[in-house]
Design a protein around this nucleic acid. Structure first.
Lengths: 345, 345
DNA sequence: GGTCTTTCGGTAACCGGTATCAGCGCTTTG
DNA sequence: CAAAGCGCTGATACCGGTTACCGAAAGACC
């Protein structure tokens, strides 16, 4: 048996094979958990692997398998805290595995976005993709993944069609609950700062808001709804418009915390006291919610858990482990802080 | 000439070679910009490459070159906005290149951190590493990179020893300037909320603060310095201690914006008006600085530019491009907003 | 014109794994 | 008793590039 003589400093599959007295292929079988293997042989090889602390070369595997052990995070989310939470959730799921995380921001405005993404996927041969909203709502990207044969999981604010590739929250219900809370406090003139058009989360949240008011029999004039883009500045501008109304709203629901912070800003500039003159509720529960003054009542969106679950879904059933069904629906809950009170008149 | 017949769906180097009428080797030379090449041949091959939209398989290259075209971001920074800014800076530099970004948070408390990192580097064979503070101050990691042969650039608040691998800012001078500004406004009792022990940035910023006071002949009692950990909560706690002093400070410099936001919180809880009763200055100029009320006067830390420069340094001189010397020192500047005024008495 | 450089280009091995398929020993079946 | 079936292994080709080495062609010099 002529064994290749190598000495690259790294222990290779050949070393393991030679010492265990088997062929490369058999070692490969052990690594890839082939079921057609004699238990004795497997144990022997596993011992040698453990002894040499052998780890298969990822580059070689990637080449041979035509698949990289990389998980991509594709996002176009402007909120830093959100993205970081998602990254943390994914990394938590990936910890201790052979997977690494590659970050890929995309520009939805760019004409070449889809082509770029396709090239990226084809070249890097990613194992799987986590799609963060709002880009996750783009069906074309999901189709692209399916076509290329790249696993993917879409994060979102409501179940979409392809349920298997989805990790969702119940934004609509959560906002309805938050709005009911405002109504229970006695508010009747409640303004909404909506999210950007085309965002599923914006639609769901607005829907929940409208449902709550409708259920309570409260009329919702169009003027009480202002458009926002999920940014601080847009929240500020929208709030200015709402606060100019006569009579002005006694409470404002902003579709995310950033915009809620903008509302606070606008209220302060006009000398309004929060929550006496104006109650404010946000959405997300990013750190900023707890750091503004007064602390913001908001809906906690379990985005990190969702991301963790998404990553686990992607990598599930690989290590011959039992396939644990990851939950695909996460519930958002209202966090009551100090930015809401009963209306003063 | 027997050409290998392949049809894996992907255009390979063989396709290019066949169509251009040259050998694999020649194509490889073109790709890797070997200087020993006839211009005509090069152009012909380049034309074919362009026509076929051929892109070399990264996995194969990684295997053959024993080096991946991945840039790693190693960090243990708790500030989401900071990490995102750095990521954005790096991705900007990497855009349009063959490099991708792999994120690798580390736990400085973990006993196996160094071993884990070594395994990570050895296995993934990263092209280079960007080290974000505070972990970038760890010399052991730099040594590890050097030993393994992985390029690296350390980001930091002041020049360290190995200048070649450094992108730094001038925190000390910047804080001195900010403190001088407070003094010029008439403040004499100025409190400092310092950063955590062992952080270079914390040391530099504190030093700048102390220098400014010393230069102005203002005594700095130990009680006017409170320890913080760069978190909102630590800023709040530290501020509570400082505001209990009799007489209490008329201004507080917090070593980052998060802590400054904590100071604002504490001040509000005691009914102090900002800036009339208390002036506050932060550091970093993260979005939160502009979003709190009143907008925070702070030192802008050009972390994204630094990260961009770091990534360019890493990948420089590869594409046969002219080697542009990236700046390795970035200046932080004071941003004057509304959280500072002359002391009221 | 002949020899020496110099410059290119081709062949084959190699990077470190995986996949195909044949082969082995042993049992089952006609 | 031969043929077929089954469980397990290994020789070898292959993934798609890079590189060592060698040979050939072109220009320089005597």
């Amino acid at each position: 048996m002529p064994w290749p003589m190598k000495s690259s400093g790294q222990t290779t599959i050949n070393d393991v094979a030679r010492i265990a007295g088997v062929s490369k292929k058999t070692v490969s079988r052990v690594i890839n958990r082939s079921p057609l293997l004699n238990d004795d042989t497997r144990r022997r090889v596993e011992d040698v692997i453990a002894e040499l602390a052998y780890i298969p070369n990822p580059q070689a595997r990637a080449l041979a398998l035509r698949r990289n052990f990389l998980i991509g995070l594709v996002h176009d989310n402007p909120n830093a805290q959100m993205v970081m939470n998602v990254q943390q959730g994914i990394l938590e799921a990936l910890h201790g595995t052979e997977f690494e995380l590659v970050v890929r921001p995309v520009d939805r405005g760019s004409a070449t976005m889809l082509v770029d993404l396709r090239h990226f996927l084809e070249r890097q041969r990613l194992f799987g993709l986590v799609l963060l909203p709002p880009i996750s709502e783009n069906d074309t990207i999901a189709k692209l993944c399916a076509e290329i044969g790249c696993r993917y999981v879409r994060m979102g604010s409501a179940r979409l069609d392809d349920d298997d590739h989805m990790v969702a929250s119940n934004d609509c219900e959560a906002v309805r609950g938050a709005t009911e809370y405002l109504i229970a406090q006695g508010h009747r003139r409640i303004g909404l700062i909506a999210g950007p058009h085309g965002f599923r989360s914006a639609r769901e949240r607005r829907l929940g808001f409208e449902q709550a008011l409708a259920d309570a029999g409260i009329a919702l004039p169009r003027s009480m709804i202002a458009d926002g883009t999920y940014t601080f500045e847009s929240g500020l501008t929208a709030a200015e418009r709402l606060l100019d109304l006569m009579p002005r709203p006694t409470a404002i629901f902003a579709c995310n915390d950033e915009m809620a912070a903008g509302v606070m800003h606008a209220a302060r500039q006009r000398g309004l006291d929060i929550p006496k003159d104006l109650s404010i509720v946000g959405f997300d529960d990013t750190p900023v919610a707890a750091h503004v003054w007064p602390p913001l009542t908001t809906v906690r969106w379990p985005i990190a858990s969702m991301a963790r679950s998404a990553a686990l879904k992607l990598t599930a059933g690989l290590d011959g482990e039992d396939i644990v069904e990851e939950p695909s629906l996460f519930l958002s809950t209202l966090i009551r802080r100090a930015s809401v009170a009963a209306p003063s008149h």
